[in-house]
Simulated scan of single mutants.
Amino acid sequence: MASKAYLPAGTITAEWRDFLALTKPRVMTLVVFTGLCGLLAAPQSIHPVLGFTTVLCIALGAGAAGALNQWYEADIDAVMRRTAGRPLPAGRMDRQSALHFGVGLGAFSVILLGLAVNLLSAAILAASILFYVLIYTVWLKRRTPQNIVIGGAAGAFPPLIGWAAATGRIEVLPVLLFALVFLWTPPHFWSLSLFVRSDYAAAGVPMMSVVAGPKATRTQVFLYTLPMVAVAMAPWALGLTGAIYGVSALGLNAIFLLFAAQVAVSREIDPAAMKVERRLFAYSILYLFALFGVLVADRMIG
């Protein structure tokens, strides 16, 4: 059956909601939040207008990466249940429109950030977009079960961008925040992949749960949680944050470790019954929001 994803150029039936859907707004929310926290946690303040511009450009850059990802993966999205309703596989938009939208949005976000704020933050934003599109989407995702491990760097750039926008430099704390998101990505996505394994298998994506199986994936979820916890605690251990962050991070990480351990020992094979896997996936999102939130509170109060 021919996919609707390959409408001829110019056959546009898309509405503004479809262009918004291309940007993956739910994913963008977490990206923008970590970028904002990197901005607010920086030791130097930034003019509110420039701060707003920075956050806007991070959002636009993330949206551009999402749009280009969907442009390239229209064939995969068409055979996965959770993505079949997206604008391209659903036939509401032609691929050329998605490509032009993604490229234009990405170029605009980088140029605006460079002209309005500084070149360092713009360069990091450009690197994040290119990394997500070229390294993760084009090169890694269809070739290796390590796609999420290496590709996780793409979503880890926003704190660096926010910090660089405020200070014009890169320091130890934003690098630790980068490493935290980088190490958080495998347990976050692999817990998801366990209960949507059939989707990835149908699409031919060599996700860890498909290639190595659920048992090995559950072990990897727990093993990657260990260095993630260590990096999450490092800002407090190095004296870069105070007790508000330290105590909060201790509690948040303890819960994450508990849930990851439950996933590691689970032997459930029915995706519909994978409660601990779904719980870890949901908690991992809350975890990152909470951890970055208390970081900002700690830095502001401290």
Rank of each mutant, 00 (worst) to 15 (best):
L20I: 15
Q70D: 05
S193Y: 00
R279V: 03
P8Y: 12
F189G: 03
T29I: 12
A90H: 09
A64W: 00
L99Q: 09
L291K: 09
A9K: 09
R95L: 03
A78L: 02
P186N: 07
W71P: 00
D77H: 11
V265Y: 01
W236S: 14
G293T: 14
A78M: 02
V149Y: 07
V31D: 09
I76N: 10
I255A: 15
R81H: 11
G151P: 05
L295Y: 11
I58A: 00
A297Q: 06
I244W: 14
L183P: 05
A59L: 12
C57A: 07
S121K: 07
G104W: 12
R142N: 10
G114K: 04
Q146K: 08
R169W: 01
I161L: 04
A216Y: 08
L240E: 14
I161W: 09
L258I: 14
W236N: 03
T217S: 14
L105V: 01
F195L: 12
I135H: 07
L88Q: 04
G63E: 06
E73Y: 05
A122Y: 05
V149W: 13
G104K: 01
T34W: 09
L125G: 10
D270P: 01
V133T: 05
K24A: 07
G38R: 00
Q220G: 10
V205Q: 05
V49N: 01
F222C: 04
G151S: 08
S284K: 07
I244A: 10
A156N: 13
Y224Q: 03
R81F: 00
F52W: 12
D270H: 01
F108R: 06
T29M: 15
Y200G: 02
D199W: 05
F222M: 15
G106Q: 04
L105T: 06
M28K: 02
T13M: 11
A21H: 10
S284D: 02
G251E: 10
G251L: 12
L22M: 13
R218G: 08
I170N: 08
L22F: 06
L173P: 06
L113V: 09
L112I: 13
L113I: 08
A126N: 01
I301C: 01
Y283T: 11
L160Q: 07
G66Q: 04
Q96M: 13
F157M: 08
P159V: 02
A116W: 04
V110F: 03
L99R: 13
V133Y: 15
T219M: 13
Y224R: 09
F256E: 02
P206D: 04
A41M: 02
W139G: 01
A90M: 00
M28A: 15
L173E: 02
A90V: 12
M207H: 08
F292N: 09
T29Q: 12
F189W: 06
A202H: 12
K141L: 12
G213E: 07
V229L: 15
L180Q: 07
N147H: 10
N253F: 11
L160K: 04
L99E: 04
T241G: 08
Y283H: 10
A203G: 11
L257G: 15
V32D: 06
V172F: 06
G246A: 10
A62T: 09
L88H: 04
M207D: 10
L173I: 02
A261P: 05
G239F: 14
